[in-house]
């Protein structure tokens, strides 16, 4: 099987744009399909989140199937929170059988931050182990050493947190992910380009593609809420002040402007290999951000 479209682009050195869609809480996927249609030709791939923030939703695999159906390029987000090694492997087999080959390997948020706080946390694997699990499966064996019928080949990625307030242990983990075979990284939200520059100075020694995570904020309140409640998010005071300075109702506009500005600088200064836009519930505004950042929609897919 040939490389996925996304993998080919990763290898092409072009500036990549990915984004993500959070599936609905419920079986009505019409809005998600609408978002897929809106975004699929504007970005290089669409992540479908896996019960993001531990909130139960339509499954990421189901969302990826829809992306495929609509002619887009999906990235399957897989967390280890809800599935043990049997279920993880089975889902990967299903994904591959349906030509869903890009996988973002995550440990997953803690159950405690979600909406089913009394559920049993699984965490049979962590993100590093999940990456290795996929490479093992590609070698033709499952995690018990039994032969798998049919060859598999995935394009695998992971996340990294360049703005973590205690970076050293995060970098050790990043290197473990690289060693485990991660080909690309979509970072946690970047708000301060200095930290991205610092991180890239270090990360450029590794043969991996780094897409800077861009979170689109809709208000100062949302930023503060995320700082307090969403694992791993650290919105800088400068950005919060900027959002707080606009008149009521103009927050999202400002958020779009900030996101576009960050993307533009990253691209112009060639800071990393691309961006991953997280619009958290405002998926429809992604094309506008790209427009403002002056990134031509869908750089290579035109012909």
């Amino acid at each position: 099987m040939a490389n996925s479209l996304f993998e080919e682009k990763l290898n092409s050195n072009e500036f990549l744009v990915t984004t993500e869609i959070g599936p609905p809480k419920g079986a009505d996927v019409s809005e998600m399909v609408h978002h897929i249609d809106l975004l699929k030709d504007n970005v290089d791939a669409i992540n479908i989140t896996d019960h993001q923030s531990s909130v139960m939703r339509f499954p990421s695999l189901g969302g990826c199937l829809l992306v495929k159906e609509r002619g887009g390029e999906p990235i399957l987000q897989v967390t280890c929170r809800d599935r043990n090694r049997l279920a993880l492997q089975a889902d990967l087999l299903l994904a591959y059988s349906r030509d869903i080959c890009n996988v973002l390997c995550l440990t997953g948020d803690s159950i405690d931050v979600g909406d089913h706080k009394e559920a049993k946390p699984v965490f049979d694997a962590d993100s590093v182990q999940l990456l290795r699990m996929i490479r093992t499966m590609e070698s033709g064996k499952d995690m018990s050493g039994e032969d798998l019928k049919g060859a598999l080949k995935f394009c695998i990625g992971a996340s990294v947190h360049p703005e973590a307030d205690f970076i050293e242990p995060q970098l050790i983990k990043f290197e473990k992910k690289v060693a485990a075979g991660a080909q690309f990284f979509q970072t946690q939200g970047i708000f301060d380009l200095a930290s991205l520059r610092r991180f890239m100075q270090y990360a450029s020694q590794f043969d991996v593609r780094i897409l800077a995570g861009i979170i689109v904020l809709a208000s100062a309140r949302m930023a503060r809420y995320m700082n307090d409640n969403v694992p791993g998010i650290i919105v800088s005071e400068a950005i919060i002040d900027e959002l707080a300075g606009v008149e009521k109702g103009k927050g999202l506009e400002k958020g779009i402007e900030i996101a576009a500005r960050l993307i533009k600088t990253i691209k112009e200064e060639n800071l990393c290999h691309g961006v991953h836009i997280m619009a958290v519930g405002n998926e429809r505004i992604v094309p506008e951000i790209l427009e403002q950042a002056k990134l031509p929609s869908m750089p290579t897919k035109a012909q």
């Binding site: 440990t107 948020d109 803690s110 946390p121 962590d126 182990q129 973590a164 242990p169 473990k176």
Partner: peptide
């Protein structure tokens, strides 16, 4: 909380 073995998750603050 997650009992993970290869280092911290990104949620630590």
């Amino acid at each position: 909380t997650k009992g993970i073995l290869n280092g911290p998750c990104a949620g630590t603050k």
